[in-house]
Computed example of a mutant assay.
Amino acid sequence: MRAETAIPDISFRGVTKRYGAVLAVDKVDLDLPKGSFVSLLGPSGCGKTTCLRMMAGFEQPSEGQVFIRGDNVTGVPAYRRPVNMVFQHYALFPHLDVADNVSYGLRQRSPKPPRDEIAKAVDEALAMVRLSGYGARRTWELSGGQQQRVALARALINRPAVLLLDEPLAALDRKLRHDMQIELQNLQRNVGITFLLVTHDQEEALSMSDRVCIMRDGRLVQVGTPRELYDEPVNSYVADFVGKSNFFSGTAGRAREGLIDVTLVDGLKASGRASKSTARPDEGASVLVSVRPEQIRLAAKTGDLPNGVAFRAEVQVLNRIFLGEQTEYLVVHDRLGEFMVRSPRQGNAPTAFEIGDKVAVGWPPDAALILSKE
């Protein structure tokens, strides 16, 4: 018998959801470990919000089962599940003050807890989200970030098994969104409750989560830590969706010393490593060589490229975008076409290259990831 701590807070077993002829979720198996921060990440229409709604009980699966802490809750309505949800637009009651918004769930219980017990719970919940003393405020008197925290306090006051977050930061500006990402991480660690975040923002998912689940067309494509997804994607879809990547078509050659030789366009030669998450492509197979922009080095001429660079080529700068801590270049090669390079800023040195400059690029073999074409 497994220890109770090994039982996931939420499990999907073969969960499928159909809306008429539309297949929204397709045979998903998923576990949310106890105390984890997990993100469902994918583009609009990939099925992530439908999964969230089936966890909450707002939707029921067409096939498969949903478990919460080992109990089968398939068919159980939302109000009988030990989960709470924070919505994108907070869904606060404008006619109630902050304290009444936060205590709403407690006041719906039967029997209702004593008034002093509710007041104590509200004070603790507001302290948890750093809003002590805000109980008498009206919601429309608060900033967007403060309203966000009121919604979190309302969701956490019942101490749910899992807190479901439906793109809760989408309505905030960039700086406030970054601040709230840190707030959510700290809050999750402090309360120890499993958080499930649904988002299409890969930066948000990677910066906040212990595990990220990449979805596409209703299916899970890859589940792993942010570093695993970034460094060892299973295919070009994940490599392109998690961060930015350049892709070059080629044909796989022989494997040697952990690397795979690849013939690119017009016989151009390169090499790279296979992802640990996938099988090594067969010799002669059509492949994609994926290279992250920040792993490509720029120099005035080929001889100035650093040691360890294997692939070297001459390119022309087409565009340049200054991003503060780094500069992003769009360059073009006469056979490889256009691709992106990110060069870190070094001290107070001015940007080295201008639009139209002829420059050299290169990358070490382990920077190139060889992926099978889908």
Rank of each mutant, 00 (worst) to 15 (best):
T5N: 12
D9A: 15
I10G: 12
V22A: 12
A24D: 10
V28T: 09
D29E: 09
D31C: 02
L40G: 08
L41N: 08
M55N: 09
G57C: 09
F58T: 01
P61T: 07
E63I: 08
G64K: 04
V66C: 02
D71F: 08
T74G: 04
G75N: 11
P77C: 03
A78H: 05
R81N: 05
V86E: 11
V86R: 08
L92G: 05
H95R: 08
L96R: 03
D97Y: 07
A99W: 04
N101H: 02
Y104K: 14
R107H: 09
P113Y: 06
P113E: 10
P114M: 04
A119D: 15
A119F: 11
V122E: 10
V122G: 08
V122W: 10
E124R: 12
L131D: 07
G133Q: 11
R137K: 14
R137N: 11
G144H: 08
G145W: 09
Q147N: 10
V150S: 10
A153W: 05
N158W: 03
D166V: 02
E183A: 04
Q185P: 00
Q185F: 07
G192V: 07
F195D: 08
F195M: 10
L197V: 09
T199R: 12
D201C: 11
L206A: 12
I214Y: 13
I214W: 05
D217V: 01
T225M: 05
T225H: 02
P226F: 07
L229K: 13
D231G: 02
V234P: 04
V238G: 00
V238Y: 01
D240I: 02
S245M: 05
F248K: 04
A252I: 03
D261E: 14
G267F: 07
G272D: 04
R280K: 10
P281W: 12
E283K: 00
S286I: 03
V287F: 02
D304N: 14
G308I: 06
E314T: 14
R320E: 07
L323M: 13
T327L: 05
Y329Q: 00
L330C: 02
F339E: 00
T351F: 15
V359K: 01
P364C: 12
D366I: 05
